[in-house]
């Protein structure tokens, strides 16, 4: 097989892996939108905040230490201990559940019945507020995420496949971190599906997603379900933050990963978990393949961002609800 053909396959494989990372971010949007009709602009910042909190807890950093030191004139920075990764993940999840409760208690409980645009604006405010709180709590420096995730290309895959092509082919490159992300995403999606199908809370969550009024009439607490949904979105944000943060260090640019999720949502639909996954994969493969075949050789490169949106736009024109989204039919 020619090297160009094999490199094309390599691009597709890496596109699929990148798509999984995009889908991880998109999942958080879908969970909240499906259950409450809120387009959560703060999802990217939640990923940042969760990752910051995880590193802060692991390193034994004192939250708000800069603020405390500035007010009290002290020199406190850390507790002097380090927390094991698993325990830190658990503690971070507790923080994200607390955040979910606070969001529901102090923001959205007061906005029940408001127009979707009002709810959307509230999430914009939430995003900036959370970014500021994250900065105050953990500082703005770049943090290294050391939870033992593998990095680098898989030597085994490279050596195993290097004989497929001629001299110009060096074997497939597959990032070990991307492989882990794929497995984690698969486990996460299966877990979410099992939770939604086979648990009482999961079924209640689906009932709320289907019809708020009907769910209320059978005694389901909307307040509880929305806290649950924001907590699940917090869990997804933590996973996304960890995977993206492992590549670049945990830093404030992490909040911008939300930009990668928007075309995925446009393509996959705002209400479908499988849609987020398939949308992520289509966008990942599409943008990488376009860059490989047309973008880099003919257009000067850096086509991935706009191509992803263009691809999503084409889908939107022909299928406004997305690949798996629910079609809205309003009778007058």
């Amino acid at each position: 097989m020619s090297a160009d053909f094999l490199y094309g396959i390599e691009v597709i494989i890496n596109g699929l892996m990148a798509g999984v990372l995009y889908a991880l971010v998109a999942l958080g949007f879908v969970l909240i939108f499906k259950a409450s009709g809120i387009f959560n602009y703060a999802q990217g910042v939640m990923a940042l905040f969760a990752a910051l909190t995880l590193v802060g807890i692991m390193e034994g950093q004192v939250p708000f230490s800069h603020l405390i030191n500035a007010i009290l004139g002290t020199e406190i920075h850390d507790f002097g201990w380090e927390v094991p990764a698993l325990l830190a993940i658990l503690l971070t999840l507790i923080v994200m559940v607390g955040f979910a409760w606070a969001v529901q208690q102090f923001v959205f409980r007061h906005l029940v019945g408001q127009e979707p645009i009002i709810l959307f604006m509230a999430t914009i405010g939430l995003a900036y507020f959370l970014e500021g709180v994250g900065d105050l709590m953990w500082g703005s420096d770049i943090k290294t995420l050391a939870i033992g995730l593998p990095q680098g290309g898989s030597i085994w895959v490279e050596e195993f496949t290097s004989g497929l092509g001629g001299d110009g082919f060096y074997g497939f490159f597959i990032d070990k971190l991307d492989m882990v992300a794929t497995i984690v995403a698969a486990v996460l999606v299966i877990g979410l599906i099992v939770f939604a199908q086979y648990t009482k809370q999961g079924r209640a969550m689906r009932a709320v997603a289907d019809d708020h009024q009907a769910a209320l009439s059978v005694g389901i607490s909307l307040n509880f379900i929305w806290v649950l949904v924001w907590s699940l979105a917090g869990l997804v944000a933590l996973v996304a933050g960890v995977m993206w943060g492992a590549k670049s260090g945990v830093q404030f640019s992490l909040s911008l990963i939300a930009l990668k999720a928007l075309p995925v949502l446009m393509l996959g639909g705002f209400t479908s978990i499988p849609g987020a996954i398939v949308g992520g994969l289509v966008i990942g493969v599409g943008e990488k393949l376009f860059e490989y075949t047309i973008g880099a050789p003919f257009l000067g490169g850096a086509t991935e961002n706009w191509f992803a949106y263009m691809l999503a736009l084409i889908f939107l024109v022909f299928r406004p609800q997305g690949l798996f989204g629910e079609k809205m039919i309003e009778r007058v």
């Binding site: 691009v11 890496n14 490169g301 991935e304």
Partner: peptide
């Protein structure tokens, strides 16, 4: 912002 550079480094 440069968070995704897989294409460039594969090239």
């Amino acid at each position: 912002p440069g968070q995704e550079q897989k294409s460039q480094w594969l090239q």
